[in-house]
Structures are given as C-alpha cells and as structure tokens.
C-alpha cells in the first residue's frame, strides 16, 4: 500500500515537471514563463520530497528531509521573487491578452 502512494507522488512530480517545462516553452513573456517554471520547481520537488518521506517511514532520515523541505519552502519563492523583481525594476511590460477585461 505504501509503495503505491510513493509511486503516485513520484508520477505526480514527473507530470508537474513536464508541464512546467511545456509552459516555459509555450508562454509569451518573462513573467508567465516564471510562473510556469516556479510551478514546476515547487510542486514537483515537493511531491518528490513527500514520496521520500513516506518511503523512509518514521526515522531520523524523515526529520532531515523535513528540514530540507522547510529550507525549500523558504528558498524557492525567494529566487522566483528576485527574478520577477529584477524584471519589474527593468520595466519589462507584462504581456496581456487581447480583448480581455479592462
């Protein structure tokens, strides 16, 4: 039973990663590409971490993975934010859908 949950989370991680990369190729401007890549990096890596935590059960290794997850919770958004802030400070105008609501 545990193995199947681990499998499910790993496959979920792979799917999110693939879709994030697809989004980076499809989307039109830096901000939306950053959205896609941050989705890929957060959710897929988190799925892999959860799979690893379930696989190792209750032990010291789980605690270490938990600490790594917490670091990831802090570091990943900060890197995405820094890139977005740089683009915003350089006055790159965000892409907007034509005919959208004003």
């Amino acid at each position: 039973m545990t193995e199947w949950i681990v499998f499910a989370f790993l496959i979920l991680g792979a799917v999110f990663n693939l879709m994030g990369l697809l989004g980076v190729l499809i989307f039109p401007d830096p901000y939306t590409r950053l959205q896609a890549s941050s989705t890929c990096s957060t959710t897929s890596v988190m799925s892999v971490f959860i799979a690893a935590m379930i696989d190792s059960g209750i032990s010291a290794v789980t605690g270490k993975i938990l600490v790594i997850t917490l670091f990831f919770f802090i570091s990943s958004p900060v890197s995405a934010h820094i890139i977005a802030l740089y683009a915003w400070k350089n006055e790159i105008i965000p892409w907007r859908r034509k005919g959208g609501q004003e």
Partner: peptide, 30 residues
C-alpha cells in the same frame, strides 16, 4: 509574500511596507 509566490499562479513582484504588487496568471478581477 513567500506564500503568495509559493502558490502556483501568483508571483509577488514587490513588497513595499504594506503594499504588494502581484503578477496573477489567471486574473478574475483587477
């Protein structure tokens, strides 16, 4: 700010005192 950026679909561009600028992928309202 970190939580908003961590949630897919929204990225915080700037945090100035209590004023946030957020880029929203699927905007329902402005």
């Amino acid at each position: 700010t970190n939580s908003i950026t961590l949630t897919p679909g929204t990225i915080t561009l700037s945090l100035d005192d209590d004023h946030l600028i957020v880029h929203w992928l699927e905007a329902k309202t402005t």
